[in-house]
Structure formats: C-alpha cells, structure tokens
C-alpha cells in the first residue's frame, strides 16, 4: 500500500473527529455571535463584551489562571522530585509506577467520595480548606503521571553523559538540574501540556466536591459556564468557550515560540 493510501485511511478518523467535535464547535461559535438560543439576531461582539465585563467570569479566569497555574506548578515540582527518586531506586520503580499511575485511572466519583469526607468542602467557606481539597486532589490524581513521564525521559539520557559529569565532580543534584533536566526539556514540555490539559479537566472533580456554586476561592471558569447554561444563556457559554480557546491558543503560541527559539539557539 502506498504511503498516500495509508495516510488517506488515517484521515478517516480525523473526519469523524471533525464531524463530532469541529462541527459542534463551529455551531458554538455561531451561538456566540447571536442574541441567544431563542433569538437568532446577530449580536456581534456584544456577548463577548458582556462576558468579559462580568465579575464572575473575571473571578473564574482569575482562579483558572492563578489557582490552575499554581496547581500545574505544584504538580510539576512534585514530578521533578519523584522522577529522579524513581530513577535512583530501580527496585522500587515497578511498584512506584503502579502506585503513581493508579490515581489517574480511579474514577472521579470514587476519589471525591473520600475527599469530601476528609475536607470541609462547604461552599460557604471561602477558606483554605476548599483550595486545599482541590489542589491535593489534583496533585494526587495527576502529579504521578507527570513523574512517570519524566522518569521515562530521564531513562533515555545516555549513561555516558552522566558518568562524564560525575568524573568532572558534579554531584547528583547538580547533574540532575544541569544536565538531565535540560536534556529532557522537550519531554518536560510534554509533561507541562499534559498537566495543563488535566488542569482544565479537573472541573469535574471540582463540581463533585463543591457543587454548582462553590466558594469564590475555587470558582473556576467552567462553573461560570455551567451557571449560564442552566440559566439558558447559551450565548454566554459559547462566548466563554471561544475566549477560552483564544486564551489557550495564546498560551500554546507563546510556548511554541519559546521552544522554537530554544531549538534555534
């Protein structure tokens, strides 16, 4: 079979993806530009300006950026700590990877039943307890995956390089930060992407923990979207979705440019 044919076959699932996801996304963009789901007059950018000026949208974006960013960094830090430890103790690696990967697979409802018993998740408490619940749940579920991904990246680094560094007098910590991590840079970027993706998806856990209307400290953008949904303001949900896509594009674009410059350098 020629390469073109194989690729043509490979394009079929992407056509399915386009039908199931891109077409609805296109329809969502349409809804963002009309008055409402009940009134299809063209609204231009009115929905976007309404949403962007809404204090709860701003609260959601703020929490998404700060809390979300904090969660990603915390998970990354945890991964950076756990991965070398796994590498250093090969006998524990098998069990370690099983323990680290399992939380990702445990269904959200199962995990939340425990978390809601341990933490005080009442929405009236705008306190550290809600944030702690969400952050610890996110770390438990996803930091392990980051660690495993990073571990596999560290494994690929040739032993000769680290031996050479040891000969030059570099200690384990220095070798890790000065040699291994930079060499695993691309894989580290992959870990960041995964952690970011998981951060966006941890709305489900947040919803299960806190309900539709959590305290202001953990009110994410997705809560705002859900809220507008049950109020039948789909035009605002759509506007939020478009803004979220643009936000993600900007982040991705920035990351891409940084990586490109690094490669050129």
């Amino acid at each position: 079979m020629k390469k073109q044919k194989l690729l043509l076959i490979g394009a079929l699932p992407l056509l399915g993806f386009a039908a199931c996801y891109l077409v609805p996304l296109g329809m969502t963009v349409y809804y963002a530009l009309v008055n409402s789901a009940f009134d299809d007059r063209f609204a231009g950018l009115d929905n976007f300006s309404y949403v962007m000026s809404n204090q709860y949208f701003q609260m959601g974006m703020q929490n998404l950026s700060l809390l979300g960013g904090g969660m990603i960094l915390a998970a990354l830090l945890a991964s950076l700590v756990i991965a070398p430890l796994l590498y250093r103790h090969p006998k524990l690696t098998g069990l370690g990877m099983a323990v680290l990967l399992l939380p990702l697979l445990i269904p959200s409802v199962s995990a939340v039943s425990l978390w809601s018993a341990v933490f005080d998740t009442r929405s009236m408490l705008a306190s550290a307890s809600s944030q702690a619940a969400l952050i610890t749940l996110y770390l438990w579920k996803y930091a392990g995956v980051g660690a495993v991904l990073l571990y596999t990246a560290l494994q690929k680094i040739p032993q000769a390089i680290t031996d050479a560094a040891a000969l030059d007098g570099a200690g384990a910590v220095r070798t890790y930060f000065a040699i291994r991590l930079p060499m695993a840079g691309e894989q580290l970027a992959g870990v960041m992407i995964f952690l970011t993706m998981f951060m966006f998806r941890c709305y489900k856990e947040s919803y299960l923990l806190f309900g539709d209307y959590p305290s202001s400290k953990v009110y994410m953008l997705q809560h705002y979207m859900n809220h507008q949904y049950v109020k039948m303001n789909f035009q605002y949900v759509a506007a939020c979705a478009v803004l979220l896509v643009l936000f993600a594009l900007i982040l991705y674009g920035a990351a891409f440019l940084i990586m490109k410059r690094r490669r050129l350098a």
Partner: peptide, 14 residues
C-alpha cells in the same frame, strides 16, 4: 428545582 426560576427565564427570552 435548581433551575433559574420563571422570571429569570422570561428575562432571558426563554
């Protein structure tokens, strides 16, 4: 029932 009450729906044109 946890949904926007009727006056809210009237305001939204639903």
């Amino acid at each position: 029932y946890g949904m926007t009450p009727a006056p809210g729906l009237l305001a939204n044109g639903a």
